[in-house]
Design a protein around this nucleic acid. Structure first.
Length: 572
RNA sequence: UGGGACGUCGGCAAGCGGUAAGCCACCGGGUUUUGAUCCCGGCAUUCGCAGGUUCGAAUCCUGCCGUCCCAGCCA
């Protein structure tokens, strides 16, 4: 894999704090120079770009330090988890280009070991069965500023705890009647240390262990031990777990087993989208989007369907860096990474999205000339393809203005422009319907300008792409825009509903687009630059050679749009 | 009257006592048969604030201020 796609600070010149820690550990021989990470998703939702940051970090570290990275499903809560999610997660990680080889693990694989260790803690007098109700436990916990109170069951004997815990597992105790708690310190300033819950009773089938268990371990009781079992060296997680690190360390210490090091970094936030699993789930279930892979979603599968490449996402992850400050990255940077990735790679094609017919009155009817168009000016090796030219063509509606403002240098009555790779044409007549809308243009061409230049060397300011009416394939093109109208929809005042800021124009579906013939042969997920428009992908699901469907992944940088904005007008 | 973390350009982010990297965005200008790409230039006398130590501080000390996380039998 190419490690030089950083886009940001060059690797080697400056290291993020995690790599600095690893280097220090290696220098001190802490883990014998070993680097072993893990990506630990809970299978209760689809992966999004924020997870991609973590995946790139964990798998990237393993590659850089010649170590390993495990894929581990943190499946300790059967009420929320499902195989649908584990399958999608595996597919997404693979698509991003990472390989966990045979190291596909599940926290549920460790349930038996975890149970034995819980028994050990009970025997050490460091865990007890509490018969308080959930509400009572909450009340006894105290508040951030006030210490908690010991449960009346806190001093049960080891024997009684052992017997009760066994009954919990056996299923002879009802759901919610008791839990197993670590016995630490109810007055601890860190609330996570106030006798945290280790096991709760849930009469629920688990997607992997089925009906085998009716007690399930909590995250805190599971994560560190799972890391320990797998020999993880650096257990990288997000900032909100910083408060849990003392507990993470405490369990490992009391058990006397191998201790990985937990390191926390800031999760990713992106402008104009939401990243919380709950909101993403609501977008899908309330049908604000068409599914987890809707091209407007920040999910991996959504970005994939939108036309993003794994390389672009990895470039993005490397470019934004890793730190401990909560931050929100500009969506523009993600888009920039895609353009950077696709510009040298994507072949160019011509597509007229909003067609306007042009009849070249002095061009012979029935004549067809074939011109060669470069597949990619950035890559001469990409070759050329033939494009048919005829008397009747389509150009982009916005390439014509009847009454053009200053700085508009495309077609207008009496004006000459170049049809790329073909001829210069001059608009001679504008045809309108009864409503006064322009329906067709008449133009004359200069036979001397064949190929796009003239013997007299006269300059023409605009160059348009075009498609022969007789040869065009009709297609559907979906244009996508920001899902939200505000930069931080996830960061609204409590009484505001983030749904009110959904962008009603986040998707525009264009039908009757005129595509150059070669586009009919596009394969699903094949990406192109539609000249002067942007980067598009043949839809993974809906594209058929007979019914082409393309999604716009990202537009080209558009200086003309900027000028129009400054002039306060529009081109159509 | 708690604990944990973080504050460097509009957004990311280097910097670790020797006098503010880079990227995105933005603003100019050049090239161009994509108003794309590419190229050139501009963009923090200043590092949350205030003191202090030092020949010298974004970097060390002290005190403030601000933001985020924690009271799930979620992860």
């Amino acid at each position: 894999m190419d490690e030089n796609i950083t886009g940001g600070a060059p690797i080697g010149l400056s290291k993020d704090f995690i790599r600095t820690i690893i280097d220090a550990d290696n220098a001190a021989g802490v883990y014998g120079g070993r680097v072993h990470t893990r990506f630990p998703p809970e299978p209760n939702g689809y992966l999004h770009i924020g997870h991609a940051k973590s995946i790139c970090l964990n798998f990237g570290l393993a590659e850089e330090y010649r170590g390993k990275c495990n894929l581990r499903f943190d499946d300790t809560n059967p009420g929320k988890e499902d195989v649908e999610y584990v399958d999608s997660i595996k597919e997404d990680v693979r698509w991003l280009g990472f390989d966990w080889q045979d190291r596909e693990f599940y926290a549920s694989d460790y349930f038996e070991q975890l149970y034995d260790w819980a028994v050990q803690l009970i025997k050490q007098g460091q865990a007890y069965v509490d018969s308080l109700s959930a509400e009572e436990i909450r009340a006894y916990r105290g508040t951030p500023t006030a210490p908690g109170t010991n449960s009346p069951y806190r001093e049960r004997s080891v024997e009684e705890n052992l017997r009760l815990f066994e009954q919990m597992r056996a299923g002879t105790i009802g759901e919610g009647e008791c839990v197993l708690r670590a016995k630490i310190d109810m007055a601890h300033p860190n609330i996570n240390m106030r006798d945290p819950t280790m096991y709760r009773i849930r009469r629920l089938a688990h997607h992997r262990t089925g009906e085998r268990w009716c007690i399930y371990p909590t995250y805190d009781w599971t994560h560190g031990q799972s890391d320990s079992i797998e020999g993880i060296t650096h257990s990288i997680c997000t900032l909100e777990f910083e408060n849990h690190r003392p507990l993470y360390d405490w369990f490992l210490e009391q058990l006397g087993i191998y201790r990985p090091k937990q390191i926390e970094f800031a999760r990713l936030n992106l402008t104009y989208t939401v990243m919380s699993k709950r909101k993403l789930l609501e977008l899908v279930s309330e049908q604000h989007v068409e599914g987890w892979d809707d091209p407007r979603m920040p999910t991996i599968c959504g970005l994939r369907r939108r036309g993003y490449t794994p390389e672009a996402i990895r470039r993005f992850a490397a470019g934004i860096g890793v730190a401990k400050v909560n931050s929100t990255v500009d969506l523009a940077y993600l888009e920039y990474c895609l353009r950077e990735e696709l510009n040298p790679r994507a072949e160019r094609r011509w597509a007229v999205l909003r067609p306007l017919k042009v009849v070249i009155v002095n061009y012979p009817d029935g004549k067809v000339e074939w011109f060669e168009a470069d597949n990619n000016p950035e890559d001469p090796g990409a070759g050329t393809r033939p494009i048919p030219f005829t008397r009747e063509l389509y150009i982009e509606r916005e390439d014509f203005m009847e009454d053009p403002p200053k700085k508009f240098f495309r077609l207008a009555p009496g004006r000459e422009i170049r049809l790329k790779h073909a001829y210069y044409i001059t608009c001679s007549e504008v045809i309108k319907n009864s409503a006064g809308e322009v329906t067709e243009l008449r133009a004359t061409y200069d036979p001397e300008s064949r190929g796009g230049g003239t013997p007299d060397g006269r300059k023409v300011k605009g160059t348009s792409h075009w498609v022969s009416a007789a040869h065009a394939a009709d297609g559907k093109v979906r244009l996508y825009d920001n899902l939200f109208t505000v930069e931080r929809p996830g960061d609204l005042p409590a009484e505001e509903d983030w749904r009110n800021y959904l962008n009603p124009e986040s998707r525009e579906v264009l039908t009757g687009c005129k595509l150059e013939p070669a586009l009919a042969e596009a394969k699903p997920e094949e990406r192109f630059q539609f000249l002067r428009q942007g980067y598009f992908v043949a839809d993974k699901q809906d594209h058929r050679p007979s019914h082409p469907v393309f999604n716009r992944a990202v537009g080209l940088r558009d200086t003309w749009a900027k000028i129009q904005k400054q002039q306060g007008g529009t081109a159509t």
